[in-house]
């Protein structure tokens, strides 16, 4: 005789159709146009940089990660995003190391997917910025043939940066900060400017990020609150002192677009609650304006997101909603 069985499971009992791999591969898909734009503006070398960073991430994930973790697509995203935030003339071996650090110290050391505190791609880039400050601030200009690979791309470890016969130019933010020259908003919007491989075209990134927001694969509150904070703060400062750049320049220059749409919205490292997302985005926006206008560096999106990542556990604690039915006094204590 079989005993009657009672199956007890923990909530949630209703499950949506979106699985982690599905969302991740969707994000990879929306990054394809951004990568294509990088190739269009900076040629084959930029694609090689993205490829090297991704290779580094995937190899690390494969060697040290749990079995089968390559299939969920998160390692690919980290590598692609890291590659897209690097200068197109970045040495490939450095990009590879960046990928290794991003996955190894950004994700696996915390226990793998879903448990990291900091955005792995940005952590990899912060490491590269600290380790190779010259290489990561050398911005080759676009143009030339598609297949022209820059000499710096192919340089080897400990051999210097190769022949320096590439034409380099400052990014719009660098021009603004150190020479006070503004770039036309139209160029910033379309992406025909100097900068990291995938960050230049505000148009392409917004379209791709907007698609993800429509599919609800990212919380739209985060990019919107970043944009609002940056726009309002820079407009106020611009009115007080016209030497400061206006809101359109601040929004479309540097890594703000790719940071706001793809980095800050990382599901693991952004707050859980909607209220927390507004706070998180406002914090990033304020820090971006502070670092860009008064800091020693021309760009601060990466650092702003990393710093706010560190605040996320605290924001989650502070914005924890009251469970329905809890007494007010209990919730307050």
């Amino acid at each position: 005789m079989r005993l009657p069985q009672l199956l007890v499971t923990a909530s949630p009992h209703l499950k949506g159709p979106d699985t982690t791999p599905k969302i991740m591969w969707n994000v990879v898909g929306t990054l394809v146009p951004v990568i294509a734009a990088a190739g269009y503006f900076f040629g084959f070398g930029a694609l090689l940089v993205v490829f090297a960073a991704t290779l580094g991430s995937l190899l690390t994930e494969w060697v040290f990660g749990p079995k089968g973790s390559l299939r969920d697509g998160s390692g690919v995203i980290t590598g692609l995003l890291l590659g897209l935030t690097l200068p197109p003339g970045f040495p490939l071996w450095m990009a590879f190391i960046g990928g290794v650090v991003a996955i190894g110290f950004g994700k696996l050391i915390f226990g793998g997917l879903g448990q990291n505190i900091f955005n792995p791609a940005l952590l990899g880039r912060a490491f590269l910025q600290a380790a190779f400050p010259v290489a990561i601030t050398t911005w080759p200009v676009g143009g030339g043939g598609f297949w022209d690979v820059r000499a710096e791309n192919l340089s080897l470890p400990f051999m210097g940066l190769g022949q320096t016969d590439t034409v380099t130019g400052a990014t719009p933010l660098g021009l603004m900060k150190f020479e006070g020259v503004a770039t036309a908003v139209r160029d910033l919007f379309l992406g025909t400017i100097g900068g990291s491989a995938g960050e230049t075209s505000a148009l392409v990134i917004t379209l791709c990020g907007g698609y993800l927001a429509l599919r609800n694969f990212l919380n739209w509150r985060i990019p919107i609150s970043i944009f609002i904070t940056v726009a309002v703060l820079s407009e106020l400062l611009h009115l007080l002192n016209p030497a400061y750049p206006g809101p359109l320049f601040m929004l479309f220059s540097g890594g703000l677009m790719i940071g706001a749409w793809f980095m800050a919205t990382d599901m693991v490292t952004s707050p859980v609650t909607h209220k927390g997302c507004w706070i998180f985005g406002a914090g990033i926006g304020a820090l971006v304006v502070i670092i860009r206008l008064w800091g020693g560096l021309p760009e601060g999106v990466m650092y702003s997101i990393l710093i706010m990542n560190a605040f996320v556990p605290y924001i989650n604690r502070a914005t924890q909603p009251t469970v329905f039915g809890t007494r007010v006094t209990e919730a307050a204590s």
């Binding site: 900091f118 912060a126 490491f127 670092i291 800091g295 020693g296 650092y303 990393l306 710093i307 560190a310």
Partner: peptide
């Protein structure tokens, strides 16, 4: 990592 992130304030 926190120290890396706070490097963003360098020169502020």
């Amino acid at each position: 990592i926190l120290s890396l992130a706070f490097m963003g304030f360098a020169g502020l």
